[in-house]
Amino acid sequence: MKTVRIIPRLDIKGPNLVKGIHLEGLRVLGKPSDFAKFYYEQGADELMFMDVVASLYERNSLHDIISETAKSIFIPITVGGGLRSISDIKEVLRAGADKVCLNTAAINNPQLIKDATRMFGSSTIVVAIEAIKEQNGQYLAYTDNGREHTGLDVFEWAQRLDDMRVGEIVITSVDKEGTGEGFDLELISKVSSLISVPLIAHGGAGKKEHIPVVIKEGKADAVALGSLLHYQFIKENESQKSDKEGNTEFLQQKRNFHIFEPCSLNDIKSYLVDNKIECRI
C-alpha cells in the first residue's frame, strides 16, 4: 500500500498569507506562521510555501517565515517562488526548507535542474507546472502564476522533467485554481500516467469529496490544498487579529465562502480512510 500526502499550500506575499483565484487577485488571509502551526498540529503531512510575488526585495520576509516555521514544525517544508539559481536554492535550504520548488527558472534554464539535482539530490528538487487548457484542448505550461506563455506542451514537459529525474512534480490547473470546482482530472491523470516520480495535484479542491477522486481517478500521489483549508482555519479562528495589508474587507465579507465547503485536515483524512485510501492519521 501507498499512503497519500495532504499538503497545505501557503501562498506568501511579503509577510502575509494570501490567496487568489486562477493564481491572480491576491487577497490577504493572515499570518503564515499561524496557519502553519495550526496545520502542523492538525496532522499536515508536509507544508508548501510559495512566494507568489517573489520580488527580490521581499525575499527576506520569506526567509524569515521559513526559519521561524522550521524551528518548531517538524514535517517536510517545500519552498518555491522566484528561485533562479543554485545560490537562491542554497539560501532557502539554509533557512530551513527541505525541498525547493522551481517553475520559471526550470523552464528558462533546464540546466539548473540538472545542476540542482546533482548538488542537492533529486528528492530535494520539486518542479511546478502551471497548466492552462487552450481552446483547442491542448495543455500548455505557463510561468509567473499563469501569466507568461511558454508554448511548452504540459505532457512533453512533464516527461522531460521525469527524464531529468526531478524528485516530484506539482501540477497546478490554473483554470481550476481557487475556484473550488474540483480538480482537472484529465490533466492530472494523464501527467501521472506519463511520469515515474510522485505527482502532487493542485488547483480546484472545493470540498472533501473532490479529494478521493483526484487520488483514485487522477492517480495523484499527494494533494496540495489552499482555500479549502484556509477558509476552515479562518472559520475556526475568527477572533484572531494580526497585522494585515491589503484587502481585509474580503475576509470580513467572506465573499468566496459559498463556493467552498471548507473542512479541516482531520475531516479530509477521515474521509479518505472511509474511502479506503491510506493516509497518516
Binding site: T3, V4, D45, S123, V197, P198, D221
Partner: peptide
C-alpha cells in the same frame, strides 16, 4: 524497482509510511 508485482511504482518513495 520501477515495476513491482507487475505494477508501476513511483520512485522515489516520498511518503509517510
Amino acid at each position: 524497482p520501477a515495476i513491482y508485482n507487475e505494477r508501476k511504482i513511483k520512485v522515489p518513495q516520498i511518503a509517510w509510511n
